[in-house]
Nucleic acid binder design. Structure first.
Lengths: 204, 204
DNA sequence: GTCTATAGGCGGATAGAC
DNA sequence: GTCTATCCGCCTATAGAC
């Protein structure tokens, strides 16, 4: 009777906790830089249990990536559906999707994990999955949002810049460096405060 | 007399060989994913010698990153100087710099190493160096090329998309996937053949 | 469902010969 | 200037108790 019943929680719930922790840690350190022990500590459980639950570190990352891609696609789909439903002007969808993307950043780890995956084209398993996801996003923007290829390219480019600035932790220079401050304000505009808040959570 | 004199080469030259090999391997696998042994094999020497020459793996990466940033800044500066010298029209500098950037990709490892560094904001040493480099590029585009902040942002975004597509190894899907082919043609345009050639070198 | 203990392998770094 | 041998720490994964 040294342990409380409440310490034993359903495996489905544990999975979610671990996935959430993993997406944070993978987002910070990358696939190779992150250790299963760091993930375990972030989730408040033991390292072997993390491995036990997913079979391997690679499986865990694959799952994290699949969730992130899914979340992104679902969000974009919902945004497009909403736009079509209430007959907003055609030139608004770009702005709507952009806002949806920046909002997704609140789930900080998810987006950073995505970005990590996008630099792993070399890996046979993760690289293939990442390419497939990226192409799916391209297709969705072109076919469902009705973007011209050129427009899709511009939109994706903006997204990659957002990812890069976050991966660089450039918001940490906000207010300290003149050029960095200008670039951040120009890039995030009205969403800047939110981004700075998210970065500020690091001290938690 | 079991070894030839020619096997012993000046340390300055060896340094360059190792740096070249390292930038390739770091570009492929990332900082944590790459091993000093892979770098040694790529350079045709022993693993301990790599470490001996640079003191540590981290020092080596810092050096690779510094070279890559320097090469980029020097190239951009030269492009801007040339543009100013022969009085080309003001609206040409964007295209000139874009072309210069794509050309830099011939030094494949360098650019991919840059990109890897841009996702390491979390690391105290490498992250700080990467932020500094990124800000230097921003400042150069704004102050020397005379771009408006908004224009700099667009330019950087395009660059980050190029980096991402290369990191993803999307060119491997060229001709195999309809959407990927379209995106690549739209992004690289006349430079596409060059990019495909560079990727093809992998089989060497 | 969760832990402790630990095996097993890998990778960075050091020692020292040539 | 370069190698071989090797140490040591870290990290994933397994075994097995509770």
């Amino acid at each position: 009777m040294t342990e409380k019943i409440s310490d034993r929680i359903p495996s489905g719930e544990r999975r979610e906790q671990i996935l959430a922790a993993a997406s944070l840690v993978f987002g910070e350190r990358g696939y190779f830089g992150a250790t299963t022990d760091q993930i375990a500590k972030a989730a408040g459980i033991s390292q072997p249990y993390v491995v036990r639950m997913f079979g391997s570190k690679e499986n865990l990352f694959v799952e994290v990536l699949a969730r992130a891609l899914d979340k992104l696609l679902v969000t974009f789909n919902a945004t497009i559906d909403g736009w079509k439903a209430d007959g907003s002007p055609a030139d608004q969808i770009g702005r709507l999707l952009g806002t949806a993307y920046v909002n997704l950043i609140e789930d900080r780890g998810i987006l950073l994990s995505l970005m990590q995956a996008f630099s792993m084209g070399h890996d046979p398993v993760i690289g293939a999955q990442a390419r497939k996801g990226f192409i799916a996003i391209y297709t969705l923007l072109r076919d469902d949002a009705g973007f011209e290829p050129e427009r899709v390219r511009t939109f994706l480019a903006e997204g990659m810049l957002l990812n890069t600035l976050l991966g660089l932790r450039l918001p940490e220079e906000y207010g300290l460096d003149e050029a960095a401050t200008e670039l951040l304000e120009c890039t995030f505009q009205t969403k800047l405060q939110m981004v700075l808040d998210v970065v500020g959570e690091k001290s938690a």
